[in-house]
Design a protein around this nucleic acid. Structure first.
Lengths: 110, 110
DNA sequence: TTGCTATATTGACAACATTCAATATAGTGA
DNA sequence: TCACTATATTGAATGTTGTCAATATAGCAA
């Protein structure tokens, strides 16, 4: 007869996850993951032309994906002559790991 | 006069990153991150009603986001009476960490 | 300068994701 | 059974993302 409640209401974590979501969005595409894995595997830089040659994507699409990675600050680039070379940004993996850890961190004090 | 090449062509990493991208897509939304963080902070389960109460989303939208997390196997759920309780899936964080590590792994042999 | 090449940007379109209203399902209790 | 509540699903509208053709930019070389 009294109002039913399923349980003591759980406190929602209330934080701004927009930046974290944006970071994960940047890695939520198979071609961008291919690019990141290639940059990680080739310790030195990779030329854009290698991506346009090897991926089944047109040049503007490759350029678009590289821009997404740039804007997420996961990669850096350098032009040398006609060519542009991309590298993993310092701490790219660490930023992603830290983002995961922050999301999944257990509450310290109840 | 000879054909110009920027560099010895870098070998693209050629792996199927679709499943990994799908996993990151599941966490690439601020409300789903809020849900995961809440599940991680509340060691025990969280009732769906807590999400519908506290998030600025309609009930079907909450249900949709929970389904995305379920389909990514990041959460599990259990119905008890009228209420449904969600938990973090065992190894959810570990799967995400492993995915990151696999993407960023350096090549062992050249 | 002109012509060539590598990469970036713009604009359009299709595919996909998010949201909500309406409805369906599954449980409780009388 | 009926009435009620919690959650899920469907379907439609809107918003976002991925893709490509066309064009722009930036550099090299003659």
């Amino acid at each position: 007869m009294s109002i039913q409640r399923c349980c003591p209401p759980a406190k929602l974590v209330k934080r701004d996850f927009e930046p974290t979501a944006a970071l994960f969005k940047a890695v939520a595409d198979p071609y961008r993951l291919t690019m990141l894995a290639t940059l990680a595997a080739n310790v030195h830089e990779v030329c854009v032309c290698d991506f346009t040659d090897a991926l089944p994507l047109n040049q503007p699409t490759v350029s678009h994906h590289l821009r997404v990675l740039r804007e997420a600050e996961l990669v850096t680039f350098e032009r040398r002559g006609t060519w542009v070379y991309y590298r993993l940004a310092a701490g790219a993996l660490e930023r992603l790991n830290a983002a995961l850890t922050a999301v999944f961190r257990k509450k310290v004090h109840v």
